[in-house]
């Protein structure tokens, strides 16, 4: 019973990070019908930017209360610029090209970013500095620490903020209008290119925050971390129904739970044959199962004509 509660807590925390990243995939897909496979690398760049600026500032004697928000803002700004640049360079020139073309440039961008990150930050794991005493709270036999609480609360707040933007602002209406009918949106006076750029920047800002969360949660960052994380977040977006914002959030949380519970119980269920290091397998089992049994995802309605 304690294990169950503990795995649910871990799953929700990890899932809320997946959800933030999945939103980036699903927003871009919803508007452009394009899977931005470089999105995982933006998360990695966000983590690296936070880490290196944080480490540098702490080294100069800047107090953590100041260094953390500054480095987060730096990472968000950097990732927004990166997201904007990716769209301008790799996707916009191919807006009217066959679907396969931007998919290939996406993979290209992803490889370029990984290699650039390796050149800048090296192949080593970078550890996240200890900024404050990370108190652990126990209840019902399970434990949760401050960082996990902060991650979950921040993720929920960001998602709520995004929903308000999308559903109750002029920008959000423009985004939804483009997602439905680009020509009609133009006829309303929407500058489609501008809104697409803003969408990439919004998704990248969330990716930067997710990068911070992942590296704070595990205490580590690495130039290769974006690849698997990106694939899992993409899986979460597909699970929820790609193109659907609520779906991305639901898919992220569910995927976190499935992984965590799977890893927690796989040892018992297989008589010790498989260990929790098989955790990553669950995400891809989920992806395959969704693609086979419900390709439109849990909340998705329209995938066929866009995939």
């Amino acid at each position: 019973m304690e294990i169950l509660l503990q795995q649910i807590i871990n799953g929700l925390v990890q899932g809320s990070i997946y959800a933030l990243v999945a939103l980036g995939y699903t927003m871009v897909y919803g508007i452009l019908g394009l899977i931005n496979f470089a999105h995982g690398e933006v998360v990695m760049v966000g983590a690296m930017l936070v880490l290196s600026s944080l480490t540098a500032m702490l080294g100069w004697g800047v107090p953590p209360v100041l260094a953390l928000p500054i480095s987060v803002m730096l990472a968000i700004t950097g990732c927004m610029a990166l997201g904007y640049g990716i769209e301008r360079i790799a996707y916009r020139p191919l807006r009217h090209a066959p679907r396969l073309a931007p998919l290939i440039t996406a993979i290209g961008v992803s490889i370029v970013l990984q290699n650039l990150a390796m050149m800048i930050w090296g192949r080593d794991y970078h550890s996240f500095p200890q900024l404050f005493a990370n108190t652990t709270h126990s209840f019902g036999g399970a434990v949760i620490n401050d960082i996990q609480i902060i991650i979950f609360v921040m993720a929920v707040a960001i998602m709520a903020g995004l929903m308000v933007v999308v559903h109750h602002t002029r920008l959000g209406r423009a985004m939804r209008a483009i997602a439905e009918n680009q020509h009609a949106a133009q006829l309303m006076g929407v500058d489609v290119n501008r809104v697409i750029s803003i969408t990439f920047m919004l998704g990248s800002a969330m990716a930067a925050v997710a990068g911070l969360m992942v590296s704070a949660n595990y205490g580590l960052a690495h130039y290769y971390m974006g690849f698997l994380l990106g694939l899992k977040a993409f899986t979460a977006a597909v699970l929820g129904g790609i193109g659907n914002l609520r779906g991305a959030m639901l898919g992220g949380l569910l995927l976190g739970l499935i992984e965590s519970l799977g890893a927690g119980y796989i040892g018992d269920l297989s008589g010790g044959f498989f260990g929790s290091n098989y955790q990553d397998v669950f995400a891809f089992l989920v992806l395959i199962a969704v693609l086979v049994f419900r390709p439109s995802g849990l909340l998705g309605e329209r995938l066929a004509e866009r995939a």
Binding site: R170, R173, A174, R176, A177, E180, N181, H183, A184, A185, L187, M188, G189, V190
Partner: peptide, 24 residues
């Protein structure tokens, strides 16, 4: 332009559609 086939935003409410008209 009211386009051929109307081009209404089907997944938005009527009120939101009208607000889109006033976008500029």
């Amino acid at each position: 332009l009211v386009p051929e086939g109307r081009g209404v935003f089907a997944r938005m409410t009527i009120a939101e559609n009208l607000l889109m008209g006033a976008y500029s």
